[in-house]
Each structure stands twice: as structure tokens, then as C-alpha cells.
Simulated assay, not measured.
Amino acid sequence: MTAVRALGFLLLLAVSGVALAQQQAPGVPSGSPEVQSSAPEVGAGRGGTNNSQQPTSSEQQPATGQPRSAAPEGIAPRPAVPVAPIVAPPPFTARGGPDAADVELEEARRLGVVRGMVSIPNQSAGILVQPVGRDWRSWRTTVLTIAGAILVLGTTALLAGLFFWKGPTRIEAGRSGRSIARYTWLERFNHWMVATSFVILGLTGLNITFGVYVLRPVVGPEAFTALTWWGQAAHQFLSFPFVIGLAGMLAVWARDNWPTRVDVAWVKAGGPMAKGHPPAGRFNAAQKALFWFQVGGGVAAAVTGYLLMAPAVLDNVTSQQIAHFIHGAMAMVMIAVILGHIYIGTIGTEGALEGMSTGRVDFNYAREHHSVWVEEQLSEARRVVAPPDARAAGAD
């Protein structure tokens, strides 16, 4: 029993000696902890000063959990390097470069538009800024409105003054009591289809341009909104019979509206301002000019109108604005010209309206205004009544 106690006492002394030897290792002061913390002293870090020596890339870093060896004797420790505080960057607009507004302005000056990116088929929805749109709006609200009002109202006033000053053009020889066929039922049907659709197109278009200034103060906002909505629908749907009628006019009247030498002589004689009635065919030079203007202007107005009805066909807003410019300007000019045509064909010339209402006109009216055409009709009638190869009765 005594031997066991002695053996245990010796084992305890051996373990204590080993632990004491490890604590008294060379280069490590007595009482130092086994593992030193790598955290910097108080005050070290961003904006502060770390007084502890920082290892360089050439120094061997101790393994984790191992005591750090002291610097060799005779070498002075490196001085601490002060670390400047990290300052937050200034805002984007204060960095000396252009801000977002300047970038957009420069883009607008260079390209005319500031465009974004969209994922829908209508790419025009991506346009954010379009300075040209201000020019279009100015033209739409000032030039078109003022010039259109002057043109339409000026033409109306001129025709009214002409009627009260001169009155209608009478049949100089008076009515003969006989008539001559001038238009077929197909020609009259096509004419009235074009005329009716054009009148409604013109009125609804004028309402779009002037209604907010003229009509809304009279009928009120609610009634004006309903009227404009239905007017827009009529404006779109009645464009189709108008275009069909234009095609019909080309089919039935194009041959009779080609310019001839008779038209040149009619213009040289003074046309409608000449004394008397210069010779003319089925249509005089003024009527032929009206025909081709109405066909060309109608096609231009129809094409631009359909492009405005389907804006996705045009790939940018500028093209839509050009289409609107052509459509509006052509419509105003056509309205003014057709006002003159309506005046001459109704109250301005005696006997003219009968041709489009009944298909026949007075013989004296036809001979005074379209003498060459009357002679052609009489020659054709004589040929039909008495063919060239016909023989007189009793000749054989």
C-alpha cells in the first residue's frame, strides 16, 4: 500500500514538471497565456492606430493556436502605419459629371428623342421625350386651327358674297322644255354615296378640330363628349364607302376627264369668267381639275387616315405626326374646294342640280355649258337612228 502511494506521488511530480517546463519555454515570458488573441488593441481599426506590429509577407505567420515568437533581438520593431478613415463617396450629381437631366437633354439634342426599351409590339410606347412633339402640338392647336378656320369660313363668306352680288347663273336662252340624258343611275348613285360620306366625314372632322371651341360651350361637356364619340365612329366607318366611291368615280368618269385641246381653249377664253360660254365637252377644264383633285386628295386623306387608325403600322411617333399633318391639311383644302363645288352645282347654276337628281338636264343648259358634248350626243343619236348603210325607202 505504501509502494502504491509512493508511485502515485512520483507520477504527479513528473506531470507537474512537464507542465512547468512548457510554461518556461525560451522567448515566452512567464505567466503568458498559451494562445494570444489576434484582435488589435483598443483604438486600432478603421480611422485609428494599431500599435501592434503587423506581419509582412516575408514573415512566417504562426499556426492557429500556437504562441507567436518575439522579434529577433537587435531589430527594432516597425513603426505603426496610420490608416486614413474611409469617407463615403459624394452623391452622383456632385461628382463633377453630368446628371440625368443633362444626359437626357444631350440625347434629345442629338437624336431628337429620348427612348426607353419596351417589350410590347408598339415600340412608340418607349419614347420618353420627343421635342418634335411640341412643334406638332403647336401646329395642331394654332396653325391648323387658325388656317383651317380662315380657309373654310373665308370660302363660305366668298361664296355667300358672290351669290348676293351676282346671283345664280341663269340659262340665257331660257328653258327649252326638252331634256337630254346626262348621267346614268349608276353614276348618280356613286356620286351621292361619295357626297354623303364626304359631308359626314367633313363635319365630324371639323368637330374634332373646332368642336372644343365652338360646340362644347353651347351643348355642354357631356353632350359634346357623346357627340364626338359617335362622330369619331362615323368618321372611321364612313371612310370605306368614300374610298369605294372614289374607285367608282375613276371607273366611270376617268375617260371623260382626260384633258383635251377643247379644255385648253376653254381656259384661254377665260373659263368661268369669260363672257358667254366657251365650248366644252361633257366636263369643262374646271370640272376635270376638280375631279382629279378630289381623287388624289381623297386617296391621300384616306391613306393617312387609315395609318392613324392603325398606329402600330408606323414605327415611330414622328411618322404618325406627318400622317396627321397631311390628313388635316388635305381635309381642310378639300372641304373648301367642295364648298365651291356644292355652290356651283346647286344654287349657283340654274339647271345643274337636275342632272344629279333626275339624270337629265334641260337641252338649253347643256348646249350653253357643254356644247361640244351636246354635238357629240346628237351625232351619235343620228347615227343610231339612221345608220350609214341604211337606204332610203323605195330605193330598191
Rank of each mutant, 00 (worst) to 15 (best):
W266F: 11
R175I: 13
L159F: 08
G355W: 00
G31I: 07
V313L: 15
T169R: 11
G298R: 04
L105V: 12
V118K: 00
L11P: 05
W165S: 15
L378D: 07
G202N: 06
V385E: 15
L314A: 13
F240C: 02
A181Q: 12
M193W: 03
I322D: 06
P82Q: 12
G345R: 02
F163H: 14
T141M: 11
M309W: 13
V267K: 01
V28H: 08
A14R: 04
E368V: 09
R261N: 13
W192P: 05
A125E: 15
L250T: 05
A147N: 05
F237H: 04
R134H: 13
L290Q: 03
G281S: 12
Q23T: 01
L203S: 04
Y183S: 05
P221R: 10
I208E: 12
G48Y: 07
F293N: 01
L105D: 15
T225C: 03
P241G: 04
V267W: 10
F164P: 00
I344D: 10
L246S: 12
W258D: 00
L159I: 13
P388D: 14
R137W: 14
A274N: 06
A329H: 07
G177Q: 06
G211Y: 04
T204H: 03
R383G: 10
F9M: 03
V28W: 00
R68F: 09
S52P: 01
T225S: 14
E104H: 02
A234V: 11
V295R: 01
V299H: 05
P90R: 11
R110I: 06
A366E: 07
D256W: 07
A352N: 01
S239N: 09
S124I: 06
I338S: 03
Q60G: 09
T93W: 14
P221C: 10
G48D: 08
A312V: 15
H324M: 12
P82A: 14
A274R: 03
Q321I: 06
V212L: 10
W373Y: 05
G270I: 00
P33I: 10
Q320L: 15
S179Y: 15
S357M: 14
T196R: 02
P33F: 04
V262F: 09
Q123E: 15
L250K: 01
F293Q: 07
G340S: 01
G112D: 01
L203N: 04
G340Y: 02
Y365C: 11
P91K: 13
L111C: 08
I150P: 04
G348S: 04
R188T: 11
A181H: 13
T225W: 12
Q130R: 10
P221I: 11
R182V: 14
A352E: 05
G270P: 00
V218K: 11
W266T: 10
A393G: 03
I244H: 03
L378M: 14
K275Q: 12
T349M: 06
R216G: 01
V28E: 00
S197G: 07
G43L: 08
R46H: 10
H191L: 02
T209R: 09
R255T: 14
R140W: 15
P62Y: 02
V18D: 10
V15Y: 07
W165H: 12
G245K: 03
P388L: 11
S32K: 07
W192L: 11
G45P: 14
V42F: 06
H370P: 08
G45A: 08
E375L: 00
S179L: 11
W165F: 13
G211F: 03
G74C: 14
A336P: 02
Q60S: 09
H327R: 10
L246P: 01
A336R: 00
A108H: 04
K288E: 04
R95V: 10
